[in-house]
Amino acid sequence: MSEVLSYGFIQHAILAGIMASVVCGVIGPFIVARRMVFISGGLSHTAFGGLGIAYWLGIHPLLGATVFVLAAAVLIARIHEKNLNQNDLAIGILWAVGVAIGIIFIHLTPGYAPDLMTFLFGNILTVSPGDLLVTLLLVLTVTATVVVLYRGFVAVALDEEYAKARRLPVASLKMGLMVLTALSIVTLIQVVGILLVIALLTIPVAIASELTRDFRRIMLLSILCGIFTCLAGLLVSYVAELPSGASIILCGGALLGLVRIGNRLFAGRKSPPPTLRQ
């Protein structure tokens, strides 16, 4: 086993998994509480359109994806703010159109065509030191922003109308949360893929919500569950020679199932259902 850990690419994968878990554990509880999971799915698939155009133009993929995701995030936030009841519709359309743009432009790009599966599942085993550095910057940005604006974000997630009545800058806070989500998604899909980002934003939060009902502890436990899931998934992937991203996701799903069953068996009889589950 120690021999496995001496491989550089395994070390990079572990570091990437830990950092992705920190980002998702910090931002995921807000996304779940504000019912933004579908929005996150839409944003991450919109990013795919930006990636495709970036490949076609020959610029850095991160640049294209960032522009696309931020534009989509601002658009969704504005539609949400105007109460047009079209949020759901807009996200679905952005989702599909984003992927379609990506596929068309990657098809049009001459020469090397990146494997589409890489964007869906990522390849955590091929993470470069450059990717790690960008991810570290993301970890610092997201964590610092949430630490500074924690009370505002909680107030908005808890009761948006009351936050408005208290004259908090609700629209800016919502936009801030959306932009953080977008930045996290865009960075992490380079590292772990679209599906793993969504999995890390939701599964650890669901596990943590089974175990505690304090928001700060949910954040902390989400980080720990994410890290555990990534490490377990990498191990399974290595031992059974299975794709790494999918292994991590299934490990998370299995852990969630076990925790829920354990909760029902040992403590679940009298306690009401945990709060973040919908």
Binding site: R151, A155, Y162, A163, R167, L168
Partner: peptide, 13 residues
């Protein structure tokens, strides 16, 4: 405690 929040004190924890 969220009732104590206002536009001056919502940032920093």
């Amino acid at each position: 405690l969220t009732g104590c929040l206002n536009r001056e004190n919502y940032y920093l924890s």
